[in-house]
Every structure is written in C-alpha cells, then in structure tokens.
C-alpha cells in the first residue's frame, strides 16, 4: 500500500465536525462595521507596538508562494495603486505628507537623498513604524518607469531597524533573493514583484498587513535600514543607492 495514497484516503475519511453556516453571521458583522481603511491600523499597532518584525513574502506571478525574509521595522503600506496622480503617496498610505526639512526635524537619524535622482517629488513621515519611517517618493519620468505595484517611479524608505539575518537565511528563497554589497554595506536584492507583510511580536504572519512590492534593494548603514522599491534593474538601483548623501 502506498503511504501517500493512504494519507489522501485518510483525509477523505477524517472525522471533521459539522459547522454552522457562516454566511449570515459574517454578513451581519460586515454590515455592522464596514471596512474603514485608516481605522484598521489603530488596533493592529496598539496591540502589537512592541518588537514588531517584518517578513517579506516573495510571490511568483499568479500564485502566492511564501518565502520569508525577516527584517525588523519594515513599513507596510497599501497598494497596488494602478496610476500615479499628484500626491499619490496618500493612496499608498505612506504616512503624513511632509517635506525634507520637515521630516529631518521629526526623526533622530539623518535622512539621505540619492544624488542620482535629485530632490524627491513627495516626502512622507510615518510614525506608526517603530522609530518612524521616512519615505521619499519619485514620480515616473523618463529615467524612472512606472513601477507595477506602487505606480510610482521609485520609493526610498528610510527607517531605524536592523536585519534579522538568521530569519532571512532560514527562509529566503535563493532564486529570488540575492546578497549584494551597497557601497561597501551588505544588502539584499529581491527580484520582481513580491508581497511584503508584517510578522507580529509572536512571529505570526499578519495577513492584514499584506501589500505588493516591486523589486527591492534592502541594505543597512549603521542603525538605519534603506529600502528602494522600483521597476529598475539591480545595476541601476545599486547606482542610485551608492549616490545617497
């Protein structure tokens, strides 16, 4: 007798209890409290305000195949946004709109800007991320094609946080995640559109925080982690990363 075939047969014969019909109770709950995007954050962040860890889940086209890359402090925002209109960062839920000077006054770490791209089109400050995250958003332009997931030309995230190398090495899918050096600092390149989500303090996957990310370069300088998300090649992204000042 074949073990696997027998397991399938056991599955068909399992004693699974009857369950109530969920249609009416789920309908009632949804109708009583319809989804509101902004409020959704409050309980998540207050409940899990300590030691938030993030996991990047790499997905191949069509099917979500998980491959975790643990990085503490990675911000989760909401996408995808099909087109970028002025102030598109609002639709991506990147936090409060600010300016470079305003952001610099609000975080403890130095905010760097890539010389290769010049001043960002939009700047956001997100205090929901432990340590506060700053996002520089560049609109699509001749040298920055519109990225599939975000609709932006390029997003540069800067926040205080460290890589969790042990988790990354345990879960990373070598085919999609590549170790790189960014201006002498170790980093990682994740090729292609993938999902990003938080793990909570217990290490549990937090599906509500799922969102799509374009190809991303992730590296750390001192206590600050940088993450560039765009539709650009690794080579071009590395050039931009090396031009941070």
């Amino acid at each position: 007798m074949n073990l696997e075939t027998t397991l399938f047969e056991i599955g068909a014969g399992l004693d699974v209890p009857e369950h109530a019909d969920f249609v009416a109770p789920v309908h009632a709950r949804i109708a009583a409290a319809p989804a509101r995007r902004r409020r959704r954050w409050a309980p998540v962040w207050t409940r899990r305000s300590i030691a938030l860890a993030a996991a990047l889940v790499v997905v191949s086209a069509g099917i979500a195949v998980g491959s975790y890359l643990g990085v503490r402090g990675v911000h989760i925002n909401i996408g995808p946004a099909p087109t970028l209109s002025p102030g598109a960062g609002g639709a991506l839920d990147l936090g409060a709109r600010s300016t470079l000077a305003g952001a610099r006054a609000r975080v403890a770490f130095p905010i760097r800007v890539p010389r290769a791209l010049g001043a960002p089109d939009e700047v956001y400050v997100d205090r929901r991320v432990p340590g506060t995250q700053v996002t520089l958003l560049y609109h699509p332009r001749s040298d920055l094609a519109e990225a599939r997931a975000s609709g932006a030309g390029l997003l540069l995230f800067e926040f205080e946080g460290t890589f969790n190398r042990a988790t990354m090495e345990k879960f990373a899918n070598p085919a999609q995640i590549q170790s790189v050096t960014v201006g002498g600092f170790p980093g990682f390149w994740i090729q292609g559109v993938h999902e990003i989500a938080f793990r909570n303090a217990n290490g549990d996957f937090e599906p509500e925080t799922l969102r799509l990310s374009d190809s991303a370069l992730l590296w750390q300088i001192g206590s600050v982690t940088f993450r560039i998300e765009s539709g650009l090649s690794l080579e071009r992204t590395l050039q931009i990363a090396a031009s941070l000042r």
């Binding site: 996991a55 099917i63 195949v65 998980g66 491959s67 975790y68 879960f171 990373a172 899918n173 996957f205």
Partner: peptide, 13 residues
C-alpha cells in the same frame, strides 16, 4: 505551492 502560501513558508520548506 498552496500549502506553502497557506502556511506562510517557502515552497522548499
């Protein structure tokens, strides 16, 4: 692939 996705682990895992 579905098992990997549901359990939140890599397919190789």
């Amino acid at each position: 692939a579905e098992t990997a996705s549901a359990l939140g682990v890599a397919r190789g895992t």
